[in-house]
Amino acid sequence: MPAAKKQGLQTLVFQNPPVIVAAGTVVGGKEAQGPLGKTFDLAIDDPYCGEKSWEHAERRMLEDAAKTALKKAGLGTQGIDFFLAGDLENQILASSFAARSLGIPHLGLFGACSTFYEGLIIGAVLIDGGFAEKVLVAASSHCCTAEKQFRFPTEQGVQRSLAQSWTVTGAGAVILASQGAGPVITHATVGKVIDLGQSDPTNFGAVMAPAAADTIVRHFQDTGRPPEFYDLVVTGDLGIYGRELAQGLIGDHGYRVEGRYTDCGILIYDHDTQDTHAGGSGCACSAVVTGGYLLQQLQAGKLQRFLGVGTGALLNVDSPKQGETIPGIGHGVVIERR
C-alpha cells in the first residue's frame, strides 16, 4: 500500500504545509559585494570574523544566522523543538559546535552542498507529522575551510580551473512552523544518488547536473505538473556550465525549463567582475540565496511558487585519489507564497 502522504515514486505532499516564518542569512565580504548583497541580513568582511581560525569563523556565522532568524521570529531557543544543521567541515563540526551553544535538540545532517534542502525536507516532515511545532534548519560553508580541506591551501600558487566554483562563505537559517505567516513548503522530492562517471573534483557542476536533472524530472513526473506550473526552477550550486548540462538533460526527458531555470551559484556572484569562474557553491550557497533573495521574492509577490533543488557532490578528501567517481544528489522542495 502506498504511503498516504507520498505521490509517485519520490515526492512527499504535505497536508498541513509547514510555514517558513523567518530566515536569517550571514555572508562574507565577497558575497556582500555580489548582485544579491542587499538581500542578506549580515555581512562580515573578515574571513576570520574576529575569531582565531576559519573554523571558528564558520561556526560563528552559523550561530549568528540562527540567532538572526530566532530574533526575527521573536522566539527564544526554548521555542524551537529541533535544530537541523549541516556543513562541509569534517564530521560536520561547525554544526555540532553551533548546536552546543544554542542548546536545542539537534539532528546533524550531511548532504554535501544539498544539506540545506535536506534539512528543509526533514524539518517539514517533522512538522507535518506532528512531531514538532517549530524547527530551525540551517547550513553553513566557508571558502577557506573548504579550500584547505578539499583542494589546495589558500596561499598555494595554483591556477583554478575555469569550471571550478567558488565556495560561498556564509550561513543560512530558516524557522519552519506548523502555523504562522509566510511562504509554505507544499511538496518535496527526495533525490537519488546519481553517478554518470564524472571524477573531476574541480568541476562539481558536471558532477551534480545529472542528479539535479533526475530529481527535477522525477518531480514533474510524480506530480504531473508541467514546468510552466513554476515561476522558477532553481538549483543549488551547479554554476554556469552545470546549469547548461542540467537543462540539456531535463530537455532530453521532454521538459522545457528554458527561461524559468536558474541556479543559486549563478545568482550570488557577478560572473564578469568577481572572478569566481563557474559560480558559487557550498552548503551556504543555496542556504543564503533561498533564505535571502528567493524568500524575499515570494514575499514581494514577484514569485508565486518555485521549485528549489539543493545539489550535492558526494566525495571525501581521499576518494578521488582512490580512483572513485564522484556521485551527486539533488533534493527538491516546492515553496509557495501564501
Binding site: F152, Q156, G157, Q159, S161, D200, T202
Partner: peptide, 11 residues
Amino acid sequence: LMDLTNYKVTL
C-alpha cells in the same frame, strides 16, 4: 602539462 590534461596533472 596542466592545461592540456585539464588540470588532472596537479601542482
